[in-house]
Simulated scan of single mutants.
Amino acid sequence: MITRITGAAIRGIVVALLIAMPSLLLPDSATRSPEVIALLAILAAALTFAEYFSSYPSFVEFREAPPLNRMRFIALFLMVILVSLLARHPIEPTALTALVHSLAFSLGEVMNFAFSPIQLTGLMMPAQTAPDLVAQVMAAAALTYVIALGAIAGFVLAIRFRDWPLGNGPFNVWTNLPLFDPTTGGDVVERLQRDACINIIGGVLLPFAIPAVVKLAAGMIDPGLLSAPQTLVWVISAWAFVPASMIMRGLAMLRISDLIAQKRRAAYANAEALQTA
């Protein structure tokens, strides 16, 4: 009980810190509505504590199958911190912000090739947008995209070399997939594989599709809002994190479907051996 309370409390505090991080790193002149941010941080911490304190899952997937959720959280945490430092550099430059600024702009130049998602984020900005803002958006996009690719590669390595999720013991489908009902909708393996393909395809296409949608909906969505540092941090972080999270979820579901199929083949082989014995 003490271990569960402590773990849930630590997770809640870390989630609250994530939400408050842009306000803590950005200058006061670049932050808006600190009271709202504090309220959101407290609410997120309370929800996280309630989820991990409870013995019964509600909506968080793979909570008993590390390191998937930890890798996703670390990736988002890095995105928020680094983009916050990048957005702070033009306002209050420091040695650390200069380092992040140099790294991000270098990545932006390297990844700015034809039809790349980084190029599309620049093209979605209105024609009258200041070149410095366009370059900053592309640099932030490149930085977060590299982090997202690193998180995906890390999870692939965890599956390949750590035998995820069996490296942590038996995998409980009900605990780790609380929103998935294995008793309805046909064969479990086929449903998992279908959902996995949808997640992976959607995760691959979203970084390309979102800038295109924003460009087409220029009358309703103003990309110039990214000139606000806090908006830049959360929008660009979400643009990279959500697709990466979808791809990692799809890979996880493919892995689970493969394990279920292996157990089925082993059970059929044992049944045939008993019949022929």
Rank of each mutant, 00 (worst) to 15 (best):
A44V: 10
V137C: 02
P229K: 12
S237R: 04
A261I: 00
F113A: 12
I81K: 05
Q193T: 12
I81V: 15
A217M: 12
R162M: 15
W164D: 05
A240L: 02
A212V: 15
R249Q: 14
P67S: 12
A218Q: 15
N69Q: 12
M124Y: 03
F73A: 13
S106C: 02
L39M: 07
Q230Y: 00
L68C: 03
A130V: 05
A16Y: 07
P57T: 15
G203Q: 03
R88I: 04
P93H: 10
W239I: 08
Q136E: 07
A98S: 09
P211F: 03
V173P: 03
A87Y: 00
L76N: 01
L43D: 06
S23P: 00
T6I: 15
Q119A: 09
L99K: 06
D187C: 02
L24G: 08
I198V: 13
E272M: 15
A153G: 13
V100I: 13
V60L: 14
V60Y: 04
P131W: 11
M246H: 06
N176Y: 02
V80G: 01
G224V: 06
T6Y: 10
F208A: 08
A139F: 01
S54C: 08
R88G: 00
I236V: 13
L206H: 02
N270H: 11
A151Y: 03
